[in-house]
Design a protein around this nucleic acid. Structure first.
Length: 602
RNA sequence: GGGGUGGUAGUUAAGUCGGUUAUAACGUCGGCCUGUCACGCCGAAGGGCGCGGGUUCGAGUCCCGUCCACCCCGCCA
């Protein structure tokens, strides 16, 4: 048992002693961060989550402590008592506590440590696989401690902000009824109801709307959500949302509430003033200029649509162009100005990337003298008129390169949107962190309510069936569903979707029409959303809401390069936890209790 | 489901046209050192190259399969 823990109180953290404390008797607890043993003088950097303090052992301070200090190794957990002394001429300006050191009179080793799989240093020197397998050691690294402390601060500021503004923090269930559509759910077998399953909530969506019907008016929650979809750099199977719902509000009211939070977070955590209100862009415009609904506005290389140009020249004699037009395809390009040279090898790599996304290839043309094309198989077939018209449409000058895609709109957009990002990174167009102007927030607004699903040849809800259409578009519900815009909005930051929400459809009559368009009949609607439909009939207030991806916000705020870095115990891309081994096997007995059979090897 | 990158001491990496005993740094172990803070100096241990096949006189290097990790597409209302 530890004498020092029982008898002495920790007086300071390892990050706070300064010249003003010289002469004080102090007690510090922490980990041996590094050790410099000079025989008669032993220097230890002692670390806790607040910082590092140098502690010194010499026989003249205390014989016993000095002898014991010879046994210290990295990551031993120790307690020291001693006197704060000035370092005199040996000040270390790189350390916050570099003006002082502690001359130790008492040392206790609370616990030893075996040699570590990797060093506890800020500079990442271990592969993520190793770090994740020993996450508790990885989290000791000061850089990781700062990330999680920032995360904690975000939570605290968010709670303060919403509480101050009259929001109630209310909880919703995680174990919910499975409803089809949307993200794939994790299913949880229910022991007491044989053959039945709960779903883990993919979001509190329906419940927060019911809070509005119940009259709670302003709700927020920092809530865990679960989605059984494939993972990405910015996607984990469980993640945290800052979830918000408000009654008697317009879209502008919701924007104002969220902008206040964003400005507060950026001010408090980075000292950055975010100018409000945040800019807005129509969904259509975003698709046209950037090929997706989450544009990174930190650089140009915007898309240029030259479909009409090709059309008006009837394909210009290029068979592939003519075929694309016949199939209703579109043509879009990115102009690469001549100062950003791309080698043949670069272009081959880009083409490979494009093919990986379903493209046939990467169209390209180098602009030469008098608008001539080279480095392209189209150079011979294309008519002079069309070639010059495309150059003009793209604003391409001699020495520029245009890269383009043609075909199905979804493919063209996907390929060029990614190509734009790849080129932006390659050309170093993204402003470095801390340079100013690097926080490009954007509301993307007024997307279509429906999308046409090519597979089933039906209209499906682009987001969900409870989003309020624009009143002016109601007439199109029957005649031309693709034209119906809705009060749906995404908050985008630097190419990441950090939040999304909508004004909800609270009018049962319009709701009925929406279901009709979707081909959902009364019975099906009842079965899927019965309780919500009921609720909407019993005096549902006009309401709307939004959810911010808290993890993504934290990732961007801290400059972390992956969502995994700001989640304490994350999963790999295949959904496994390398430390615990989850997901794991269970016994036949457990399965039997749950009335579950598994199909092996199928 | 598809496209791509990677896997070599505890860790991070090098390893050329296939060729003796597979390198280095950090860490570890032993010794020395009173002003270090990437401490220094002397010495030592530690891997057979993700796994399984194959080609070859000979494979870390070539081929096939497979596992794991990462990045992207699909997917994520």
């Amino acid at each position: 048992m530890s004498k020092m823990i029982d008898e002495l109180k920790r007086t300071h953290s390892c990050g706070e002693l300064t010249a003003a404390d010289v002469g004080k008797q102090v007690v510090l607890f922490g980990w041996v961060h590094s050790r410099r043993d000079h025989g008669k003088a032993v220097f230890i950097d002692l670390r806790d989550r607040m910082g590092i303090t140098q502690v010194v052992f010499e026989p003249r301070f205390a014989e016993g402590a000095h002898t014991l200090a010879g046994d210290l190794r990295l990551e031993y957990v120790i307690g020291v008592r001693g006197t704060v002394e000035s370092r005199g001429g040996n000040v270390n300006p790189k350390m916050k506590t570099g003006e002082i050191e502690v001359h130790v009179t008492d040392l206790e080793i609370f616990n030893k440590s075996e040699p570590l799989p990797f060093l506890i240093e800020d500079e990442i020197n271990a592969e993520e696989t190793t770090r994740l397998a020993y996450r508790y050691l990885d989290l000791r690294r000061p850089a990781m401690q700062r990330l999680l402390m920032t995360r904690s601060k975000i939570n605290q500021l968010t709670r303060d902000y919403f509480s101050r503004n009259g929001f109630l923090e209310l909880e919703t269930p995680f174990l919910v009824k499975y409803t089809p559509g949307g993200a794939r759910n994790f299913l949880v077998p229910c022991r007491v109801a044989p053959g039945k399953f709960y779903a883990l909530a993919e979001s509190p969506q329906l419940f927060k709307q019911l809070f509005m019907v119940a009259g709670f008016d302003r709700y927020f929650q920092l809530v865990r959500c679960f989605r059984d979809e494939d993972l990405r750099l910015d996607r984990q199977p469980e993640f945290t949302q800052i979830d918000v719902e408000m009654s008697f509000v317009t879209q502008d009211d919701i924007f104002a509430a969220m902008e206040g939070l964003v400005a507060l977070l950026w001010k408090e955590l980075l000292g950055v003033d975010i100018p409000l209100p945040l800019p807005r862009m129509e969904f259509d415009e975003s698709m046209r200029r950037f090929g997706n609904d989450k544009p990174d506005l930190r650089f140009g290389l915007e898309h240029i649509d030259f479909t009409d140009v090709v059309k008006s020249h009837a394909g210009g004699g290029v068979p592939l162009f003519e075929a694309t037009l016949a199939q209703g395809g579109i043509f879009k390009a990115i102009r690469v100005p001549k100062e950003y040279a791309l080698s043949r090898k670069d272009l081959d790599e880009l083409e490979k990337e494009a093919k990986g996304m379903g493209s046939m290839g990467l169209g390209r043309a180098k602009i030469g003298e008098a608008g001539a094309w080279s480095q392209t198989p189209f150079a011979k077939a294309i008519s002079d008129d069309l070639r010059l018209a495309i150059n003009a449409a793209c604003g391409a000058q001699e020495g520029d390169l245009i890269v383009f895609q043609m075909g199905r709109p979804a493919m063209v957009h996907a390929v060029l949107a990614n190509l734009r990002l790849t080129l932006g990174k390659k050309f170093g167009l993204i402003p470095p962190y801390g340079s100013g102007g690097q926080w490009r927030f954007l509301w993307v607004v007024n997307p279509p309510l429906f999308e046409f699903d090519e597979e089933s040849k039906t209209w499906v809800a682009a987001h969900h069936a409870f989003t309020r259409p624009h009143d002016a578009d109601l007439a199109f519900l029957d005649s031309d569903p693709g034209k119906v815009k809705c009060y749906r909005y995404d908050l985008v930051l630097n190419g990441f979707e950090i939040g999304g929400g909508s004004i909800r459809l609270h009018d049962p009559e319009v709701q009925k029409k929406v279901f009709q368009t979707l081909g959902i009949d009364e019975a099906e609607a009842r079965q899927k959303f019965g309780f919500l439909l009921d609720a909407l009939r019993f005096g549902a207030p006009p309401h709307g809401g939004i959810a911010l991806g808290m993890d993504r916000v934290a990732m961007l705020l801290t400059g972390a390069s992956s969502l995994r870095d700001i989640v304490a115990f994350p999963k790999t891309l295949r959904g496994t936890d390398l430390m615990t081994g989850a997901p794991g096997d269970v016994s036949d007995r457990q399965l039997k209790d749950l009335h579950v059979q598994t199909v092996k090897g199928a």
